[in-house]
Design a protein around this nucleic acid. Structure first.
Length: 900
DNA sequence: AGGCAGCGCAC
DNA sequence: GTGCGC
DNA sequence: GCCT
């Protein structure tokens, strides 16, 4: 029974996280079991490594300092420190509110006295390096060297943290963040008193020792703070505040409908759906709201929706696609029902339905996606691709290989204990479920455009783009001009752009087993390296995504073959290779290629090596060729083969490969932000982690208003090194500060206190002019980023975290780049490109066929925020606006027609 | 057959 | 120019 | 690896 295909899909958890969680769970178990021993070993190893490297590092630090004075060796800027460098009984207290009030920027912090006015950046870095070396030496006797105070726990004030501080860190997937460089919320502002305290605290940050005190002070002080170690971990991002300006799909829908249109056909008796009598199963993602929407739409079209199954009358049963994975739920659902057929009753908890207690037979059971599609297209579409087919052998599973059975066993029984071990936090499964549920509300109304696009594509698969009226209509809806509108290339190309999609049709966890295996395959391709491996990886990963979002549980390869034949756009990304693997998967439960790769001992090695940072496919292969087979080997005889960064990552390997709870990421962010504020009041930090656990922390630092180019970054890193928060530097880019440029630090940090692990941290500074691009970039997803950049490219623009620039190219080679357009909010970037805004949480969703037929049209909403920065751009811009005005009326008509 | 994101660091 | 990470 |  464990080998039944249907069982494969019973994983309730987000398939994306399953693998990680399995690994984490194993790790956690191991870790718990041998915690002491491991700690001891690690400690010994560290000491040893430390001993071995100490001399070398000290030399490196000095050399690095020298390098900045003109020499070349720049390795080892931030020497490693012993993990217990803070003393043992320390806990820190981080106040939960600490503002970045705009007024703060006027209070010149003493901390910035070493800033731009006084010393040259290089001098500061030299100083920094010397200090780092100094700190390191001091750390030899940690308990004495630093003035950490034992904090009893409760802050004296004990006031509850502000609601604004909590809301922001508890968001779902990437949606609980501050969006874009909005002005610092006044509500989160700090008291003047605290500001001055902080400012004076900052003033102390001269030497190493006071530097450490300084961090402590910053952590302890603060406006009526609550504690940092709150179990809930909803630590404050002082800047972050929840202002859900647009609520998910709802907002999306309302945005799409920019023109009001009288509702038509309401209450029609005959319509596209006349004759339909649907029984909707209120389970899974089919919520009350969904049913309401369905009911409205179908009734308007002349059909009938009920929650009751009426033999002889009911024509279709509509259910959440994921139920195909657990058929017994449906059986249960149809047993023991009452008999009210009133939606409102049902919504209020009344039970509705059938008396038989059996899953009705003889009526097609279809996915809710089918109904959505019908409503979108106002036509009863064929159910073939949406049929939920009972597992062929509900009680007689097909034979599957023992390997596959074992795999299934592993996957479905993964305990969810990592977050417990890691100190709490939102459970991934719960988060995923919540996100999925949220994603499904309003599904029907938000996916119309997709369907329309698909329709167009299906109808003219090789015609030239842009010739059909519908295509133009689509263009008007999805692509409203934008700066690239005049690019002659646009209009010839038809392509798929993830970033262009306004839909949110993520299904529930369907096909997760097959998708998981494809992702494994992807990972192994990447590990193996070689020509095109990244693209193979992407190909498999993409295929996995397609399966997951299909909305239909596939139980049979024939279903996919049919889809490929009849609705190729729905399975775009499933090519011959993937289909071959899937065929064996559905027939025998395994993928030969995956089995092969997983059995390869060499690949196992390469994979282990590549888990160390800065070891990629090439380096891993080299190591293997040198006879190295394990991390231990690497430590004992492979160190010299590794780059400086890889060595550091290897040193901290046990720590930094652990994922951390979101709350800890918040703490890390809070420390960085606070120190930044003490240097430059008003500076803001933010990170956009929606997931409950993360591998590292990204902190984006933004200068306060009116100080767009404040050189806060170099000082910030310096302070964080002085305080011992940053233990290792991996890369440092863009220092010293140059006006208008970004800077970045990648390294390793450790929160003070016993039992803390080292964590990977990236700290980036972006001037105000670039901040929106940076936020857009770091919000991802990576697929979405690539998509958006491709889209920009064919419009003759280049998008990166450093801006959006028009480029002139000759034979694809850039010959001239204009200055970046100025976008102060993420929205402005979308607008500039002529794209519909997409909520961060919707940026990892579907891939949708779209047209870039003309690239023009619709009213370009520049909202006064996107300001061309050169005269030439200004003229271009004006020309565009003029063009838009000329065409606006046409497109408005088109939009009107397109609506509903 | 050619494209698949773009950038900056380290080497 | 390549490798690597983001 | 997939798509054009």
């Amino acid at each position: 029974m464990a080998s039944s295909p249907s069982v494969y899909h019973q994983g309730k958890h987000n398939p994306f996280t399953q693998r990680f969680r399995k690994i984490d769970a194993i790790r956690t178990a191991l870790r718990t079991a041998v915690a002491e021993e491991l700690a001891q070993q690690t400690e010994e190893r560290r000491r040893e490594t430390h001993r071995v490297n100490a001399e070398n590092k000290r030399r490196s630090a000095t050399a690095a300092a020298a390098a900045l004075d003109g020499k070349t060796d720049s390795s080892g800027i931030f020497p490693g420190r012993d993990s217990d460098g803070y003393g043992s009984e320390v806990s820190i207290s981080v106040p939960c509110r600490l503002g970045c009030d705009g007024t703060a920027s006027r209070t010149r912090s003493a901390g910035s006295s070493g800033g731009r006015a006084v010393s040259r950046p290089r001098d500061r870095l030299v100083e920094l390096l010397s200090t780092a070396a100094c700190v390191k030496q001091a750390s030899a006797s940690p308990d004495k060297a630093f003035g950490w105070r034992v904090d009893s726990g409760d802050g004296p004030e004990g006031e509850q943290e502000g609601a604004s501080g909590v809301a922001s860190t508890c968001g779902g997937r990437r949606d609980g963040h501050d969006r874009g460089p909005t002005p610092p919320p006044a509500a989160a502002s700090v008291s003047t008193e605290s500001q001055s305290v902080l400012a004076s605290a900052g003033a102390k940050g001269g030497g190493a020792k006071t530097g450490v005190r300084f961090l402590e002070d910053i952590l302890r002080l603060g406006p009526k703070g609550s504690r940092s170690n709150d179990a809930g971990g909803a630590l404050p991002n002082p800047k972050r505040k929840s202002h859900p300006r647009r609520g998910g799909c709802k907002g999306e829908a309302s945005r799409t409908q920019t023109h009001k249109k009288p509702r038509q056909g309401t209450g029609a008796v005959s319509g596209p759906f006349s004759g339909l009598s649907l029984c909707v199963v209120h389970l899974g993602s089919v919520t009350n709201n969904t049913i309401k929407t369905f009911k409205r739409g179908v009734c308007d079209g002349g059909g009938h929706v009920s929650m009751r199954f009426t033999p002889g009358d009911t024509t279709h049963i509509v259910a959440d696609a994921s139920l195909a994975a657990s058929w017994e739920k449906l059986d249960n659902y149809f047993s023991g029902w009452g008999g009210v057929d009133d939606l409102d009753d049902a919504v209020n908890g009344g039970r509705v339905g059938l008396k038989s207690g059996m899953m009705p037979e003889g009526v097609p059971i279809v996915s809710n996606e089918w109904l959505s599609e019908c409503l979108r297209r106002s036509v009863v579409v064929a159910t073939d691709a949406y049929r939920l087919i009972p597992p062929p052998h509900r009680s007689a599973p097909v034979a599957a290989s023992s390997a596959a059975a074992a795999r299934q066993q592993q996957r479905s029984s993964t305990p969810d204990n990592q977050s417990i071990a890691a100190g709490g936090g939102i459970l991934p499964a719960a988060a995923a479920a919540a996100a999925a549920a949220a994603g499904h509300i309003g599904l029907a109304s938000s996916t119309r455009l997709t369907a329309a696009r698909n329709e167009v594509r299906g109808g003219s698969t090789q015609g030239t783009a842009g010739q059909s009226t519908v295509a133009a209509d689509l263009e008007s809806m999805a692509v409203k001009g934008g700066f690239g509108a005049r690019n002659p290339d646009v209009g010839k190309k038809r392509h798929t752009f993830h970033c262009q999609s306004t839909t949110n049709s993520r299904g529930h966890a369907v096909n997760s087993e097959a998708a998981d295996m494809l992702e494994d395959l992807a990972k192994l391709c990447a590990v193996r390296g070689g020509d095109g491996s990244v693209f193979k990886e992407r190909g498999f990963k993409n295929a996995a995504g397609v399966l997951k979002r299909l909305g239909v549980q596939i139980t049979n390869i024939q279903q996919l073959k049919d889809l490929r034949k009849h609705e190729p756009q729905r399975v775009r990304g499933l090519g011959d290779s993937v289909m071959k693997e899937l065929a064996t998967f559905y027939e025998e439960g395994r993928m030969y290629r995956l089995d092969e790769l997983e059995a390869d001992p060499k690949l196992k090695c390469l994979k282990i090596f590549q888990e160390v940072g800065w070891v990629g496919a090439v380096k891993a292969q080299q190591l293997y060729d040198q006879g190295i087979r394990s991390i231990e080997d690497l430590r004992t005889k492979g160190l010299h083969l590794l780059s400086e960064q890889a060595q550091i990552c290897l040193n901290r390997h046990e720590d930094i490969t652990q994922r951390m709870p979101r709350s800890e990421a918040a703490e890390i962010e809070a420390v960085v932000t606070r120190v930044a504020q003490s240097i430059c009041p008003g500076a803001c930090g933010s990170y956009r982690r929606g997931k409950s656990h993360c591998g590292d922390v990204d902190v984006l630092i933004r200068p306060p208003e009116g100080q767009e180019d404040s050189p806060v970054f170099d000082d910030l890193i310096k302070r964080l090194v002085e305080t011992g928060f940053i233990t290792d530097k991996l890369t440092l880019a863009g220092s010293p500060h140059k006006p208008g440029k970004s800077q970045s630090f990648m390294g390793i940090c450790k929160l003070p206190g016993k039992g803390r692990l080292h964590r990977r941290v990236d700290i980036k500074f972006y001037p105000t002019s670039l901040f929106a691009f940076a936020v857009l970039y770091f919000t991802g997803s990576s697929h979405f980023n690539r998509s958006m950049r491709s889209f920009a490219k064919i419009k003759g623009l280049k998008l990166s975290d450093k801006g959006l620039c028009r480029v002139n190219t000759v034979n694809g080679e850039e010959v001239h780049r204009f200055p970046s357009y100025s976008c102060l909010r993420e929205e402005d970037v979308f607008t500039a490109l002529g794209l519909e805004w997409r909520e961060p949480k919707d940026r990892d969703g579907v891939q949708v066929q779209a047209f870039c037929s003309k690239g023009e049209g619709g009213a370009t909403e520049l909202s006064g925020r996107v300001v061309p920065v050169t005269l030439e751009q200004e003229q271009q811009h004006q020309a565009l606006l003029e063009q838009d005005r000329l065409e606006a009326s046409d497109y408005e008509d088109a939009e009107l027609q397109q609506q509903e």
